[in-house]
Each structure stands twice: as C-alpha cells, then as structure tokens.
Design a protein around this nucleic acid. Structure first.
Lengths: 115, 115
DNA sequence: TATTTATACTTAGTTTTGCTAATCATTAGA
DNA sequence: TCTAATGATTAGCAAAACTAAGTATAAATA
C-alpha cells in the first residue's frame, strides 16, 4: 500500500460519495459527510473546495452550474477516469482500513500473565 | 471526532504498539509494522524517528539506551501520561475506522434500480 | 424592519505530517 | 572484501488539511 494513504482519506471519500450518488454540489458534500459521520467529521469548505479543484484539474470530475432558489450551485460528477480512480481508491482504503483494524484491535499485553 | 485524525494514524499506532508490547526500539517498530501489515505499510526511519522525538518532547514516552550485539539500541516505553493518551487515541482511531468503514462500504447507486 | 442563520462558494496563508535522501556506524554473511 | 542487514540521525521538501476571512443570496426570526 502506498504511504500516501496514511494521509488522504478525503479525496477517496469524495470519489466514493460521487460514485454512490452520481452528482453532488460542494455544500451538499460537507453536509452529507457531517450526517453520515454523525457530526464527527466536520468537513470545512476550506478543505473541500481545494480538493474538488484538484480533482477537476486532474480530470477526475466535471462540474456543471445550476441555479436553485436564486443561488448558484456547482454540481460535480465523475468522469470516466474518475470512475476508474474511484474504484481503485476505494479498494486501497478498504485494504488500509483492514490493516488498521488489525493493528488497533486489543492485543494481550506481552509478558503479562492473567492468572 | 477531531479532523486531525484524517491525517495522523502514525502517532496513535506507535502508542498502540508500545501499549501492547511495553518496550520497543525504533528499528523494531518499523519491522513490526512491516510484519503486521504484511509488507503494505513500510514505515521509513525518516518518518518514525521524528515522530518518536515529538512523543519524547511531549513527555508521552521515555527512552533508555542499551547495547545489544555491539550496537546501541534506544528502547522506548510509555509514561503514565503516554498510557492515558494511548488509550484515548486508540478509542478515537477505532471510532474513526468505524465511520470510515460505514462510508466506504458498497452503497446501492441512487437512481439505479436493479429490478 | 433589522438581524441572524443557513446556504453556497472562494482563496490567502499556515501548520502538520510524512517523505526523500543522505549520513554515520556496526555486524554478519557471501 | 564487499554487500546487506541492523540501528539511529537529520536537513529539506511536498502535500494535505487547517484557520480564517471574505463574497453573496435566501429564509427565518426578533
């Protein structure tokens, strides 16, 4: 597994959400993450938008503007390349999570005899 | 959950290893991580040692030098504060892993009816 | 009516993290 | 003798996510 995964779970998460839901706008993503994580992951706009712009620049997502209730929304969806990348990243993250789970499950303390 | 967790699983991992095993030296930690992760997480010395020095500076671990086979080893173990911190961090990481698992498990694609 | 809250996006600047890569030193093995 | 493995150190870099501020509109509320 590439060590970059120790950092960025954010980009895979964005790709995963777009994969599941097809089409989302920025603010919706922040709210969705907040909802799914039961308030425990609060994605700041200052974090999300630059990540989206990077995905755009990399050709992994596309944007289309729409107006809803007087406010402009920018909807993002996966490109073909983004779809492929999403699948790869999701597998990598799941592998990473499996390893982490193994590492973080309670272990009997060595040299400590209970009895 | 604090957003810092999106990054650093490394420090919690070090604390967890020390909690389980009581006492480890730097090189041993890199090899142990390599072993447990089945080669998938390759912790570089340039990554590990600065992290250890930070833990030392924060008073979460202590070091004692020993010589084994002509080579000096520096064994690290948790302080009382480190023990407390380890327990907290392990809980946070496990919460984080649970959320991530939820987010990364396959979801039915909305608007896609499979009969 | 005025103010606050929610919605929606943008961006400058900083910090943290982990990385690369090089160095030093010893021991074991080919 | 040369290389690989063990063991630690450190300088400098890049990426990631953060803080914090600003722009703008709509809805709710006092």
């Amino acid at each position: 597994m590439s060590p970059e995964l120790l950092k960025g779970t954010l980009t895979p998460l964005i790709l995963k959400l777009l994969l599941d839901r097809g089409r989302m706008y920025g603010y919706e993503i922040t709210q969705q993450v907040k909802l799914i994580s039961r308030e425990r992951i609060l994605l700041k706009e200052g974090t999300l938008y630059p990540a989206l712009y990077k995905l755009l620049a990399d050709g992994l997502i596309t944007a289309e503007e729409e107006t809803a209730g007087g406010r402009a929304r920018r909807y993002y969806s996966l490109t073909q390349a983004g779809y492929t990348r999403a699948s790869e990243q999701i597998n990598l993250v799941n592998d990473f999570l499996d390893i982490m789970r193994e590492m973080f499950t309670p272990q009997p303390r060595l040299g400590h005899a209970d009895i």
